[in-house]
Amino acid sequence: MSAFTQGGMIYPFRAADTGAWAWALAEPLAVKRGLCGGFTITAPAGFVTDLGAILPIARIVVNPADAQLAKAPVLHDLIQAEFCPAYQPFATSQLY
């Protein structure tokens, strides 16, 4: 079992240097995984993501501004940034 246990409000912003849109967490986002204690993954407030786990074509249906729908992609981007940063540019380049 998994359950989001904390926050997850996100807000969009445009990068001043590149003009690219990104999203940042306004408050920490935590998910608890497993029974009998298990473990918790927490994305800190201010974590910046491009919501890359949501394919551009799917953004027609999945609104990135909807905090409920964006929780999983935010955690996906956090795990990817923390555990495999060397592969992040390669993985992203394979999508587009």
Score class of each variant (00 low, 15 high):
L69Q: 09
P64Y: 11
I41C: 10
L75W: 01
L78T: 08
F47A: 07
K71T: 02
P73D: 04
A67S: 15
D50L: 14
C84A: 10
A43P: 01
L55A: 12
V48D: 08
E82I: 12
A43T: 05
P85C: 06
T42I: 14
K71R: 15
Q88F: 11
P85A: 06
D66C: 02
E82W: 09
A70W: 01
L78P: 05
L78C: 07
D50M: 13
P89I: 07
L75K: 03
D77F: 05
P44K: 02
Q80R: 09
N63W: 05
P44C: 04
D77Q: 10
F47G: 05
P64M: 12
P64T: 13
A81Y: 07
A81L: 08
D50H: 14
E82S: 08
A53Q: 11
A58H: 15
T49N: 03
F83P: 02
L78R: 14
N63E: 15
I54M: 12
E82M: 08
A58F: 11
G52I: 02
A53K: 04
V48A: 08
R59E: 06
A70Y: 04
Q88H: 05
D66I: 11
N63C: 10
L55N: 08
V48Q: 07
P56N: 04
A58Y: 13
T49L: 05
D50I: 00
G52V: 08
K71C: 02
I57V: 05
G52W: 15
R59G: 02
Y87P: 01
L69C: 04
P85F: 08
L55V: 03
G52P: 03
G46S: 04
V62M: 06
G52C: 11
C84P: 01
P44W: 01
V48S: 02
A65H: 06
V61Y: 15
I57Q: 15
D66L: 03
L69G: 07
V62A: 00
I60P: 01
I60D: 06
T42M: 04
P73H: 11
G46Q: 06
A43N: 02
A86I: 09
L78Y: 10
P85Q: 07
L78M: 07
H76F: 14
G46M: 03
V62C: 05
T40R: 01
A86N: 09
L78G: 10
N63P: 01
P64L: 15
G52K: 01
I79N: 11
A43C: 05
